[in-house]
Design a binder for these strands. Sequence first.
DNA 1: TGGATTTGTCAAAAGTTTTTCGAAACTTGT
DNA 2: ACAAGTTTCGAAAAACTTTTGACAAATCCA
Lengths: 234, 234
Amino acid sequence: MYYILVVDDEPSVQRELRSLLENAGYRADIVEDFTCIPEYVQKVRPDLILLDVALPGADGITLCSKIRMMSDVPIIFITSQSSSSAELECMMTGGDDFIEKPYRPAVLLAHIAAVLRRVSGRSQNKVLVFHGIVLDLLDGTIQYEKKKVELSKNELHILSYFFTHKGEIVSREDLINALWDNESFVDDNTLSVNIRRIRRKLEDIGIKDLIQTKRGMGYRLKMREREDEAEGSL
Amino acid sequence: MYYILVVDDEPSVQRELRSLLENAGYRADIVEDFTCIPEYVQKVRPDLILLDVALPGADGITLCSKIRMMSDVPIIFITSQSSSSAELECMMTGGDDFIEKPYRPAVLLAHIAAVLRRVSGRSQNKVLVFHGIVLDLLDGTIQYEKKKVELSKNELHILSYFFTHKGEIVSREDLINALWDNESFVDDNTLSVNIRRIRRKLEDIGIKDLIQTKRGMGYRLKMREREDEAEGSL
DNA sequence: TGGATTTGTCAAAAGTTTTTCGAAACTTGT
DNA sequence: ACAAGTTTCGAAAAACTTTTGACAAATCCA
């Protein structure tokens, strides 16, 4: 799970970014004490920094160059006043990307994912997120609030099917077709057992009742009341 | 000297970009035959691609995804009509950056430099590091805390594949393709044996459980869990 | 050429995951 | 409350994948 540091002074932006990032499966942290950010960065070692260009007291560009003296962490600048000379300065100071407000949340996430992809040595990030539950397709794991379990091939396959059909009722038949592509005549019960094993693993990490059964129809990922449209990262 | 491929159909833009890039110390090359760009990229191996989103015949986004199927080269999109959904699509398809026309030349150069700075760390690096384990590609050795072993060709190849796909599940098939690029029909078990030999050597220098097997899916470099309380040493 | 190293193959063993089975638990309609 | 149909559950068998050791083939290097 990637750890992103947000450096911005406006409370509304802070909240907005935090929820956006966390819903996209990142761990987000807000810094407010701008004076000792470079030291802080060195201490907590984030995977990426979102840095507001205009900060009260210190400006983002000097901050960036100070951070650069001690760390190579990727930095994405965020700015409200779009000026190409500001952009130039940001990029020359060691910034990795530059995004203007207002931005579409999904676009910001896409840029973050692109930078992280380059830096991490991982290829494309393939993560599906649902209510803070992070299903990592490359990794074959599912994570919820710091707890993580390994998934087997079937389990991963089933869960990814659910995560790409959030909230829909998925019929047993659909699942069976998705898993056992050709007709290999699996007992209908086989699916039940696979579901049960998934549910057990989910409980191990504190998720219960995620997969609901709709008797006679199939299964469904539980929709929670708090329904914010979070765009997943790539 | 970095080698940049420009994919754009307008002669004026071509000239402009060529002179801009060459004056900045890059080697620039213009492609016009859009149909076989992926193959061309694979052949000439540029360090970066500037890709116009709107091309006659083929669009930049499909082109990008085709290139991505065979190469990890950084791609910067250039567009004349600024649309956030186009930007989103570009970034999700594997693009590294997105720049709108009209741009200030210096800004474009700054973005190019930023992307190259990130990538150069990877392609030019002759050593790959992971959790204090140092894989020396030139030397053909792997080292961990003063202890070092020599690796054979296969072993080096496999390990470097893992080290460039940290934490991902790498399928046996991928590994086999990476090692025996032409179809020489190696026994599937051959890979297992090579893995075992690597594991044995790793154990000799005190590394155990680095290569995990995900049954039915492949292998994976063990990712360290991020510790929550960052114990910084200032 | 000859010896050492690396690489590929085989078949048996070890280990996991997946499937199957029957019984229990649950829903729904009458 | 009962019957009929679904779904869950635990345990054991089955199926499958990977590991292992031994050996042969291929390659490398003096």
